[in-house]
Every structure is written in C-alpha cells, then in structure tokens.
C-alpha cells in the first residue's frame, strides 16, 4: 500500500466528469439491495465509463447508502479500479516473476521511451495508457503484455516498439477512414 498524500495516480480525480449517470440505473436497480455488491457495482460502472470519476463514486454512495469514504476506500484498494480516464489502448505490461527474470524491465524501458510516458500515465494524444500489472498468467511465454485484451508474447524491446508503432499506424488509418466517410 502506498500513501500518495492525495497526489499520486491513485488519488481521485477531483474534477467532475459530467458523465451520464443514468446509464448506471439498471446496474444499481439490480445490485443495490443485494448486500456485498459494491465491488460488482464498481466493476460494472468502470465497464460503462472506462474509469470511475468522482461523481460516479458519489452517486453509487448515495444510491446504495454506503458511506462515500467506504466507496472511495474500495475503489482505491483494488488495482483493477481506475480513477482517471485511460487512453484508447490500455497496455497491461506483466511484471510477474517469470517476466521479470526474462527481462520485463527492458520492455518497460522501451515502451516508456517509445511513448514518453511512465507506468500509470496516458500519452498526450490519449491513445495509449501504460499499466504495469502483477501477473497475466502466461509465464511460459514471458515477457508478455496485453493490449486491449490481446496478448503479445515473447517480447523483446524492439518487438514491443514495433507492436506499438503498428497499432498507432493502424489507428491512424482507421480514424482517417472514419473522417473521410
């Protein structure tokens, strides 16, 4: 556990996001009367909004009757929950033992250098977010990273850079197409 004195990446984003809270109504209807469902509600909320903005946390607190500090407590305790928006592509870089032994830190250096961000940050163009995670369970293929659910195995620093460049290129092609159509 790290204390960030309210300043670290785990600190709730103080700005109100203004997201559409009504999207959460069906989730709350289903779970709010079921005791012990706070984690599930927050997971569903994160699926909806991509992260947990402070107004969503407050809304969950007021609707469920759970005190706001307890909601924040749970939202900041578990690593799955994000309090800040993420980029279009979420890179989950495995930092498990096997990946570590097989050079995960060199992969991290390459990604950080390529994207000019560090663990927990998002690129300026909101395309990539880097999250170091404990273990993805693909130890025999280490080092690995998962980008939006797709696992990339047996990485080398160059291979990692190439994957990121390809995603960026592909994304530009797709968004370019959308813009022209």
């Amino acid at each position: 556990m790290q204390c960030c004195k309210g300043q670290g990446p785990q600190a709730p984003d103080p700005t109100v996001s203004g997201v559409d809270l009504s999207l959460l109504i069906p989730v709350l209807e289903k779970y709010k009367s079921k005791p012990g469902s706070l984690i599930t509600i927050l997971q569903k909320a994160q699926d909806l909004y991509g992260y947990l903005p402070i107004d969503v946390l407050d809304y969950v607190a007021s609707e469920t009757g759970i005190k706001p500090p307890n909601v924040y407590g749970v939202a900041t305790f578990y690593t799955q929950f994000r309090l800040k928006p993420i980029g279009k592509y979420l890179i989950m870089l495995c930092m498990g033992t096997a990946c570590h032994v097989n050079g995960a830190s060199a992969i991290e250096d390459a990604i950080c250098d390529e994207l000019k961000i560090v663990d927990g940050e998002t690129t300026e163009d909101n395309l990539f977010t880097l999250n170091n995670v404990a273990c993805l369970g693909c130890c025999s293929l280490s080092p690995v990273m998962m980008i939006n659910g797709e696992t990339h195995a047996k990485l080398t620093p160059d291979k990692a850079r190439k994957i990121l460049r390809e995603i960026r290129k592909q994304d530009q092609l797709e968004t370019g197409k959308e813009a022209t159509s």
């Binding site: 930092m95 498990g96 033992t97 096997a98 570590h100 404990a134 273990c135 369970g137 693909c138 130890c139």
Partner: peptide, 11 residues
C-alpha cells in the same frame, strides 16, 4: 484468486 506471480495452474 491465483495471485502468486509465476503460477498459473489454477487458471
């Protein structure tokens, strides 16, 4: 909740 980094038999 197989959390030990380096073990994946439960998965």
């Amino acid at each position: 909740d197989e959390g030990d980094p380096g073990a994946f038999m439960d998965r």
